[in-house]
Design a protein around this nucleic acid. Sequence first.
DNA 1: CACTTGACCTGTCCGC
DNA 2: TGCGGACAGGTCAAGT
Length: 278
Amino acid sequence: MPELPEVETIRRQFDSFVVGATIDAVDVRWAKSLQGVDLEPQAVVGRSIVGVARRGKVLELDLDGGISLLVHLRMTGQLMVVDASLPRDAWDVDTTRVVFSLDDGRFLVFNDQRKFGRLVVIATDRVSSVPFIATLGPEPISEGFDGAVLSARLERHGRLCIKQAMLDQRIVAGIGNIYADEALWLAGLSPERRCATLTREEVDRLSAAMRSVLERGIEHGGATMRDYRDARGDRGSYLDEAYVFGRTNERCTRCGDKIVKIRVAGRGTHVCPGCQRP
DNA sequence: CACTTGACCTGTCCGC
DNA sequence: TGCGGACAGGTCAAGT
């Protein structure tokens, strides 16, 4: 379940060792995985990767000629760059959906067990019109993000519980189930609190906690439950450091209470009953 | 308009 | 052992 830190990890890797390469060919194994908007998916062939960006959980590869390749990994998607020296059966597996051949002999491989991920080929100046980009809220690790911004974003959603609001990409971009639980623990807030009941001081704490856990996630190369891999095929180690996520029945490092897993807004949610009181 | 449910997918784990 | 069903989770479309 790649969230902001996982996608940012991949973005940085692409920035350092993929930008400059040219796509020589595309092999599509599952047609729905790669789609074009007003363009054939094959429009990427012959183009070089000139830049890479991230918007929320979406990776944007900018190609020359004004074309972009958007990558949304959703739950089980993996985007890896493999060296030509690796034997093909080491990386070409039955979950491989799309393979891009690069001009330097490497392959850009999209694996996705559950086929939820999407690669979208679109004109760069039309990227903002793609549904999963168009409605994105502010970046929680950007310079200007603070309690005032978050407070304004929550204003119209007073009856929503705070965890559900955090998962809504229109309110804030890039947070998923893992980092929502982590940020709420760090801020000492119950995920079930209604947005309208949060004081300004609590929203300040929460905005700072979001930034903190996301940056910590990036430092650890993201979080791997089962499927997430970075561009090198490596796992992220954040869950070794997690405060509550995946630590059901373990002791809270802050108050010693036993961490429990509950259900909030239909999602598995990890909380410390001691320091996240409703 | 706000909120909920279903669809998209496949693998894993649980209980019977 | 075998099997049905719940669950995992991000987003959009459709329904209430």
